[in-house]
Design a protein around this nucleic acid. Structure first.
Length: 175
DNA sequence: TCGAAGATTGTCT
DNA sequence: GACAATCTTCGAG
């Protein structure tokens, strides 16, 4: 998914970002995956169609966007942790008045959802059509991809399941 | 009904 | 670097 384009259309307009950071959550046997708790009202979207959205609310404040992957019934997903703004940057700025730079607009899972207007109404939507779309973008060469442990979790914190575009300034966290 | 934890961000020191 | 904000989810009682 690195290099692919994430596009979200709302009544305010369309925003597009290039995906530069992802994390994998590998089903019920992954202690950090929400599906480790089994199938509940919250995790049900993870068990849905591959290629649909899983959007959840965290820390009473923020939305996080995932693409459901693998086969139906296997609750795995890819969390999009950062995108590089491509289209609709003015709209992103309006939605994130606290952002102090362009890189601050979408360099985190909560930030990019704020900037792009992704929220619960997008939960479970298919990702191959509007309003929420992932489409092909630039191909990232393997030598430009870095794999690291996942961020911000306590369980299985050492599993190398985070992928970033090497040196990209829009990746989350501190350099 | 209650309590605790959480795939984060922003502010303050 | 520490910690507050804020609320949904789920298990226990």
């Amino acid at each position: 998914m690195l290099g692919a384009l994430l596009e979200c259309t709302t009544p305010e307009g369309t925003t597009v970002g290039r995906i530069v950071e992802t994390e994998a959550y590998m089903g019920e046997d992954d202690p950090a995956c929400h599906a480790a708790a089994g199938r509940t009202a919250r995790t049900a979207p993870l068990y849905g169609e591959p290629g649909s959205a899983y959007v959840y609310f965290i820390y009473g404040r923020y939305w996080c966007f995932n693409a459901v992957t693998r086969a139906a019934g296997l609750p795995s997903a890819v969390l999009v942790r950062a995108v590089e703004p491509v289209t609709g940057i003015d709209l992103m700025r309006a939605r994130r008045p606290l952002a102090r730079s362009t890189a601050d607009l979408t360099s985190g899972p909560g930030k990019l959802c704020m900037a792009m207007g992704i929220e619960v109404r997008h939960n479970r939507l298919p990702l191959d059509r509007r309003p929420l779309l992932i489409r092909a973008g630039e191909r990232i060469a393997d030598r430009d991809v870095l794999v690291t442990p996942r961020i911000g979790i306590t369980k299985a914190a050492d599993w190398p399941l985070r992928w970033i575009v090497k040196g990209n300034p829009f990746v989350s966290g501190r350099r």
